[in-house]
Design a protein around this nucleic acid. Structure first.
Lengths: 212, 212
DNA sequence: ACAACATATTCCAATTTGGAACATCTTGGT
DNA sequence: ACCAAGATGTTCCAAATTGGAATATGTTGT
């Protein structure tokens, strides 16, 4: 509020360098008019988590303050149905421009993947076959559950007018988690085959009972 | 070295709480005898990056110091073919035990995914159709490239005796990136269909030339 | 001699995360 | 009325994590 606001300031050079997290928050703001930090977190949990982000509260509030500082969002104190006061954030025209500019011009980073299941199978020489099966099976079930949740998200998006792109991405997410589930099944089959073949020997340097 | 070393100290309680990054570094050490931080980074770039991690140098050295502090790795100064001195790290028996215990007992975190392409398509109402196509097409090509690199990694792993699990995970990675490529193709088809249908209207609150 | 590149390590400033802590209001039960 | 539990709403802090610059030294090619 006490900042410079959205008046002109053509293409803030610093603006294009916000972390992706800030753009994600601004993206959520671009869908709804007037959201609290708490509500933004809920939106993120509903949709964004399938393909981008499972946010920490602290970060949402940090980013909202930053967005307001650079004039991409503005806030005012509102009153909830309760009567409690809360800070409601809205995207500014400058923010919408900057966000569109980011989508249009910023290079797309490669996807970041941290796959704990794959990491453990990679270390399979240190685990029991039962444990490996258990890990992959749990992952398979998680993927199936996420597939169903993404399917629900897709159905919901389909019911909202103007949400064609969220619906499209939710459809992508359902296919992604279906693929994850199938990949887990194939990994289980590969594991079984490996154990049956007797080639599951540890790498050199690993102490063994009997030499290979 | 000057630390307590691997002598007994049965099941350090703090040990089980190392960040996943530390276990990944220790995992690399569990494959080869005696690696420098630099070499560990190369291994990570060869294999780990497909499913877990693209490491920062600084973090590898940080983790190595931590692992040595808790007795899971030890180092000695060695001499490279050059004649230059370098610090070579080795996993200790305690480290191998702890790593096996982590694989066996630590709960598996859900995969972390940050998919910049999906994020931008989700904000499709702010972009031109051409830009969206470009973003998804680039992602498709990246996936194809990673598929080929993972295939190479798989071939290499297959040639090393005792690397059955790395090979298995590399096979999983090739399938994963093939799926990513196919998912991108389906997303392109969905985008084309959406644009042809004329339903690509922005969400409420977005200023438009003509009202829906 | 020089540039370019590979090896090897350290340092620093941000970003990002997870969670605790602190409120307030609603709902439901005793 | 009292209490617990849970949803809403926000702030704070300590780590973990990242990216990259900075600093060396050796090799190879020009």
């Amino acid at each position: 509020m006490a900042t410079l606001g959205a008046m002109a300031l053509p293409s803030e050079p610093s603006g294009e360098r916000l972390p992706a997290t800030a753009w994600a928050v601004l993206g959520i703001l671009s869908f709804g008019e007037g959201l609290t930090g708490y509500e933004i977190r809920q939106w993120a949990e509903h949709i964004l988590r399938f393909f981008y982000w499972s946010p920490a509260m602290s970060q949402i509030y940090t980013e909202l303050k930053r967005l307001e500082r650079v004039g991409y969002a503005e806030s005012h104190m509102g009153t909830a149905a309760d009567g409690r006061s809360r800070r409601v954030y809205t995207i500014t025209p400058a923010g919408r421009d900057a966000l569109a500019g980011w989508v249009e011009r910023a290079p797309v980073e490669p996807p970041v993947l941290k796959h704990g299941t794959a990491l453990r199978v990679w270390l399979g020489h240190l685990a029991t076959p039962e444990r490996l099966r258990q890990i992959v099976t749990e992952h398979r079930d998680d993927a199936q559950r996420l597939l169903e949740e993404a399917e629900y998200s897709r159905t919901y998006a389909a019911s909202v007018s103007g949400w064609a792109y969220p619906e499209l991405v939710a459809r992508w997410a359902t296919r992604y988690y279906a693929a994850e589930r199938d990949l887990a099944d194939q990994m289980l089959a590969d594991l079984d085959e490996l154990l049956a073949s007797g080639r599951a020997v540890p790498p050199a340097g690993t102490p063994t009972q009997a030499p290979g």
